[in-house]
Amino acid sequence: MLRRYALGFSAVGRQFSNMSSTTPLEDAIRAKITAAFNPQTLEIYNDSHLHAHHKAMQGSTSKETHFRLVITSDAFASKMQPARHRMVYALLRDEMALEGGIHALQLRTLTPEEEERQKKKKEEEAAKAAAEADPAPAE
């Protein structure tokens, strides 16, 4: 136990041993989602520090309680959002059931087409906002 803890601070240990990671849950999320969904995009945000003072977190020492994921994968094609979220929840069932494990999991689940569409929409909006803010660009 003590050894693992000590290994956690060495770069070698972190590189070669999962057990010594300081972010075991994040590692597990990344590994499982990558294997199951072959995602085109996978963003994992650890928001735990934002919620550390919450009542529900009293007595918890974990630094990995609140996660926010953005996943883009073909695996979500032709599935409604609840079904997509259930796929992720099922995959991470153990990590969520674990005492002191994941307490909250925010999800954004997109197909590559949806991501593309949203990106385009955002760009258009940004361009529009920029044009409105500065109707006569210097160039």
């Binding site: 959002q81 609840p82 979220h85 925010q106 999800l107 954004r108």
Partner: peptide, 11 residues
């Protein structure tokens, strides 16, 4: 069942 918080926000 409609969804949880994230689904409500996006809907």
């Amino acid at each position: 069942f409609v969804g949880g918080c994230d689904i409500l926000v996006s809907m």
